[in-house]
Nucleic acid binder design. Structure first.
Lengths: 108, 108
DNA sequence: TTATAATATTCCTTGACAGGAATATTCCTA
DNA sequence: TAGGAATATTCCTGTCAAGGAATATTATAA
């Protein structure tokens, strides 16, 4: 799992951009307007998202349309598999660890 | 979706701690040793993870055993639902946006 | 080809965070 | 209850990222 994905999504404005792009691909100006960010910031955040592989750009006429790339989300999904497998099991059990402790018979 | 989760996982050492705790709950010392972090750093990272709700602690004797909490991962999973739904669909389609553009008949 | 719209980049400042070292705290154990 | 093990916290420093303002770039349209 690439932690760059987490870094990119950790910033609230960038997270909002991603959520916005979930509905439809959009040009920079529209993103800025809808999220009430200025143009400069929006471009910078899109750059980060782009370098993290979360979005890609497609120039149309005078504008640059940004859209989500599925790969990082799929990777995230795959990563979560390991965690799904143990929900309700080891994750909230202490026994595993306790059984392993040596040199200490009783705990209280 | 809480961006704190992303912030917490964005730091590589913390990510490694989470992955380590996936196998079993562990006390601070063991985590530090296995990941070759010093005790101070380890405590600090665990604090961040704890405040983000990713781990919880259970004191045993004079140790503090850290284990994962399932909630944030479940939340992440639920969040991904929206994205799963459109993989292969809108996510990599530009049509939706193009059809919406007014005042511009042809693009090239 | 010049003006203009859309977007990207640079420069600057500020705040947050990670790491190291040292110290404080907590809780057992003898 | 004193000593020591395990862990947490504080202080300090350096780095890096975000925001604002201004400027540069790119591509279209007249």
């Amino acid at each position: 799992m690439n932690t760059q994905t987490f870094s990119a999504l950790a910033e609230p404005n960038r997270f909002n951009i991603v959520e916005l792009l979930l509905s439809e691909p959009l040009p920079v100006g529209d993103i800025a307007e809808k999220l009430k960010l200025n143009q400069s910031q929006t471009s910078k955040h899109l750059r980060v998202l782009s370098e993290a592989g979360l979005v890609e750009v497609q120039p149309i006429a005078n504008r640059r349309i940004y859209k989500l790339k599925p790969e990082p989300f799929q990777e995230l999904d795959a990563w979560l598999d390991s965690y799904r497998r143990i929900w309700g099991a080891r994750m909230d059990r202490l026994d595993d660890y306790l059984n392993v402790i040596q040199g200490k018979k009783t705990l209280n």
